[in-house]
């Protein structure tokens, strides 16, 4: 299922990005970043299992992740965290129409968790507005 493979790629990208983000943050923010990274790892593992069940071959990991901008300080680190969570929400949103029942509810949970984290990072970074009308919608 290509939508799940794309969600997996987004989760992998998030795990990678949080590794770069944490060092630029304050102590309590680093805790949040670590917790976020852990949640992305758990989603990643679930996706790997699910794709395995579906006998779908997960797309091989890209050799590196192109960051949209350089992370040099706390401000850019928080901006990257927002960007990453928005991207994960977008990847999960396209899973909704191709799933039903529990599987759709799980995809919505993943999308919602990312949207909430994006709002938290915006709050910490003083980025407004804190919310979007349609999380997961590109653009």
């Amino acid at each position: 299922m290509e939508q799940l493979a794309a969600a997996l790629a987004a989760e992998e990208a998030a795990i990678y990005a949080y590794g770069l983000i944490g060092v630029h943050l304050k102590d309590n923010e680093q805790d949040r970043a670590r917790a976020a990274e852990q949640e992305h790892r758990e989603r990643r593992d679930l996706l790997v299992d699910r794709l395995d069940e579906l006998k779908a071959s997960a797309a091989p990991n890209p050799p590196g992740y192109a960051l949209p901008f350089e992370v040099a300080d706390r401000t850019s680190a928080l901006r990257l965290a927002v960007h990453i969570e928005d991207g994960v929400a977008q990847a999960w949103r396209v899973v909704l129409p191709v799933t039903t029942d529990t599987e759709r509810a799980d995809a919505l949970s993943a999308m919602t968790d990312s949207a909430i984290r994006a709002t938290r990072w915006r709050k910490l970074g003083g980025i407004t507005p804190l919310t979007m009308a349609f999380p997961g919608r590109a653009g």
């Binding site: 929400a89 949103r93 396209v94 909704l96 129409p97 759709r104 995809a107 919505l108 999308m111 919602t112 949207a115 909430i116 994006a118 709002t119 804190l130 919310t131 979007m132 009308a133 349609f134 999380p135 997961g136 919608r137």
Partner: peptide, 13 residues
């Protein structure tokens, strides 16, 4: 599903 899902997520945020 996508529109309603976005609305649910927006309310959570």
């Amino acid at each position: 599903a996508a529109l309603v899902g976005s609305i649910a997520a927006s309310r959570a945020t």
